[in-house]
Structure formats: C-alpha cells, structure tokens
C-alpha cells in the first residue's frame, strides 16, 4: 500500500507532514508500506530521524521507498537512512554527514562513541574547541532527556548534516515516545496541551522527574547556548512545534499528532567565541 510523502524541511510544515504520515498508520493495513516520494522535491537530511519516528507507527514487515528523485536518494542513502530500508549505502566522501542511527534508551555511551567517530575531523575544521564542547554537551542533554522521559519503546533516532557553505550544522534527535505533553500530564494529573507543555519544559528548574531529584536545566542551557551562538532550536512534541531563533520564538499547533518528540538543533559553525570562562570559580564559592 502506497503512502505519499511531500517535501520535508526542518520547519513546522515538515513536521506536520511527518505527523500526518504517522496518523495515517491508523487506517493502514497490509504487510508492506511503499513510501511514495513522487511529490517530495526537498528533504533535509537530518529530518530522517523524525521520519523514522513516524514510520515506527506502521506495524509492517517491510518499508519501501519508491519514485524517489536522484538527489534525494543520494542524500538519504549517504546518511544511511535508506540503508535501513534495504538500499545499498553510498560512502560519504565529503564527510558532511552524521549518519542516521537508532539507539536504545540506555545506550548513552554508544551515542558518545557515535559522536566521537563522526564529529572528529568530519569537515568541521572551523569549529572552536569551546563551541564543539558546548554543542556536544547540548546533544548529550537532549539525548539523555529523551532516554529518561520519552518512554520510547523503539529507541532514539539521530541524524545530522553539515552544510559547510552555509556555516551550519543541523542535528536531530527524535523518539517515538509519549511526548512532553503526556509526561507533564502524568506528573501533574492535568490536561495541558502540547505547546503549553513545551513552554513549561523550557523553564529553568521544571522537570517531570518522579524520584525527588532536581532537574530541568538541560533545555534551558541549550536555549541559552543557541541564543549566544545565533543558531536555532526546534522542539516538536505531539501537536506542538516551537522554534527558537533570533528574536522570534513562535509556537505552532500542528494539525496532526507527531508520535513523540524531536529536537532539532542548528548551530552556526563559524562562531569563534571562546565559550571557556575567564574567571575562576572556587569550589568553596559554589556550595
């Protein structure tokens, strides 16, 4: 059975399309899904991660990609996504790809190995040591947040793309879990909507941990870093989409239910700020 997929860019329209694809699984029957790319003229490589989250909604034995344009096929084959569907992978000769991978929620160390392998020397010569450290810290915070809160049975999906000409690096971390909304609803026994739940989660100190532990700094730190770096964050969770970029920080309600959460982070790789602090802080000043 065919399911059409349109262009997928890193924006609210792209996530709306992926949410529609996921919702369409409710009326789908059959053992094989043929994903029809005929109307897809653009596909941002990092969006392979949330695409995979949508595909987890289909209880099928096989997924095929059909009618796919050559350039999009190259992008999705290079980053290993189509390899998941049985295509033969193409080597990343430009070394601009952080390939698509699936991790179990307890595989934080494997994720670290992945980043170590693909961030090092991968055509990212201009990123300063300070910027690289803050970027990696951000990715670990997002990954571990997903591991802790998503309850995603199918794991966590990641994918990234460097665009040297535009001095940007895009990375997506997606899960097929309960979403921030349901995590907050369970914690407070309320009926908060998806956008309000994202807004809540971004506030410093807000956490849905149930083990009497403080938390709720990860997303706040990410937001602070991206503002300094002049990059971009997109947080999509269930019906909610939020973008933090420059002075504009809109929330949009999606038309369909995205199956989980995806955080897209885009950094300005040309940022030469020294993120290391100049002043020393003593241990005795902290406690």
């Amino acid at each position: 059975m065919l399911k059409k997929i349109g262009s997928i860019e890193s924006n609210a329209y792209g996530f709306n399309a992926l949410a529609l694809l996921a919702e369409s699984s409710k009326t789908f029957s059959g053992d094989m899904l043929a994903l029809d790319f005929q109307e897809c003229t653009t596909f941002d490589a990092n969006m392979a991660a949330p695409l995979y989250a949508s595909l987890t909604c289909y209880n099928v034995e096989k997924v095929q990609a059909v009618n796919i344009r050559h350039d999009i096929r190259v992008v999705l084959t290079k980053n290993g996504f189509l390899g998941e569907l049985g295509f033969r992978n193409i080597s990343d000769s430009d070394q601009t790809i952080l390939p698509f991978r699936r991790f179990k929620r307890n595989e934080g160390l494997s994720f670290a190995n992945y980043l170590s392998q693909y961030m090092r020397g991968r055509g990212i010569p201009r990123m300063s040591a300070g910027l690289t450290k803050r970027f990696l810290q951000s990715l670990f915070e997002i990954f571990q947040n997903a591991a802790m809160h998503s309850n995603s049975q199918s794991g966590i999906f990641v994918c990234g793309q460097l665009s040297p000409a535009m001095n940007k690096l895009d990375f997506s971390i997606a899960d097929a879990g309960i979403g921030i909304r349901d995590s907050v609803r369970k914690h407070f026994n309320n009926t908060i909507n998806s956008c309000s739940a994202i807004k809540w989660a971004l506030e410093e100190g807000h956490t849905t941990k149930t083990n009497n532990q403080p938390g709720g700094l990860g997303l706040k730190l990410l937001k602070d870093f991206i503002r300094i770096n002049q990059g971009k964050i997109q947080i999509t969770s269930r019906y909610g989409f939020h973008e933090i970029s420059g002075k504009v920080e809109p929330f949009y309600k999606l038309d369909y239910d995205f199956p989980g959460t995806c955080v897209n982070i885009e950094i300005n790789t040309d940022d030469t700020r020294n993120y290391a602090l100049k002043s020393e802080i003593k241990s005795s000043d902290i406690f």
Binding site: G130, K133, E204, P214, G216, L217, Y275, L277, I281, I286
Partner: peptide, 15 residues
C-alpha cells in the same frame, strides 16, 4: 574547567 564550574554552580542553585 571554569565553564564546568559555572555549570555546577547552576546545578547547585537549582537544587
């Protein structure tokens, strides 16, 4: 490192 000490300070204040 000093930036990690700053991170720790934020964690302690939050706690």
């Amino acid at each position: 490192a000093p930036d990690d000490m700053e991170l720790l300070r934020g964690v302690v204040e939050n706690a």
